[in-house]
Amino acid sequence: MDFGFTIAAYAVAGVLFILSLGGLSGQESAKRAVWYGIAGMTIAVLATLIGPGSGLWLMSMILIAAGAGVGYQLATKVQMTQMPELVAIMHSLVGLAAVFVGFNAHIELVNVGEVLREAGMAFPQPKGPLAAPVYEMLGTLSNFAALLGKKTAVEVGILRVELVLGIWIGAVTFTGSVIAYGKLAGA
């Protein structure tokens, strides 16, 4: 599967997410809306797993299954009155995950730069098509690293800005949600 398919799947997932949020305009359509959201998430995750750029898919599946177990336990066992706390603490997890993803991208960016420079190649890449040796070199790296290695100086700059924003927003989400949980739980 190539990137075109993955991106098409993301577009479908995006439409489903919009329908999912829009369906909450009425109580009857809301029940349908949840299923749109679930379908969108399933499509997005599956497209990433079978698409290029992902590695260790077995480990990913195991982790998702473990997360599913914990999530199911939490969501079904908790008292109805403690739902807001549960939503708050789960939201903090997303914030933390976003922070980790941002850190990872930064570390990988530094790693790729080192690897390429050690091999005597330029990083960030100059404009225009990639040189053949660089292309070969990137083929030996992991998919995500290869993706980063192809970037030009401007693109790396943009990525850095996006990473700063991503980590910052993720950290705000994390701390805010934890404090919201504490307040709701009466601590």
């Binding site: 982790l63 997360g67 599913a68 914990v70 999530g71 199911y72 939490l74 997303v94 933390l96 995950a97």
Partner: peptide, 8 residues
């Protein structure tokens, strides 16, 4: 963590 959140 994201999987916990999706299912939950």
């Amino acid at each position: 963590m994201a999987a916990v959140n999706i299912f939950g």
